[in-house]
């Protein structure tokens, strides 16, 4: 799934909560509807947080996976 299309990358590796979600929110706010953000984080807490944040805000979490570089999320702006 890593070859998913995306429009922008956000690197949150090494950051602890709440930063990955704050930065994701800022990035998504600045994007256009339908665009996809690839976000990479290393904080294990971001897994459930990003998923809960996405369902709360209506942005769609297209995919999330654990890879060698960390937790990778693909989020589509609503």
């Amino acid at each position: 799934m890593s070859e998913m299309n995306f429009d922008q990358v956000l690197d949150c590796k090494g950051m602890n909560c709440p930063l990955p979600v704050i930065k994701t929110k800022k990035a998504i706010d600045a994007m256009d509807s339908g665009q996809v953000l690839k976000m990479v984080a290393t904080d294990p807490g971001s897994k459930n947080d990003i998923s809960a944040w996405a369902s709360r805000t209506g942005n769609e979490l297209l995919n999330s996976e654990q890879t060698d570089e960390g937790y990778v999320f693909f989020i589509q702006k609503k």
């Binding site: 709440p18 979600v21 807490g45 459930n48 947080d49 998923s51 809960a52 944040w53 709360r56 805000t57």
Partner: peptide, 28 residues
């Protein structure tokens, strides 16, 4: 987030006033 809160939370010897509002709700 609600899922993590639901799975494990502070248990008190006496009744405790507890509220779950995820931090990203404060953000949004």
């Amino acid at each position: 987030n609600e899922e993590d809160f639901g799975r494990f939370q502070v248990e008190s010897p006496h009744k405790v006033d507890m509220l779950n509002v995820p931090y990203f709700d404060f953000m949004e």
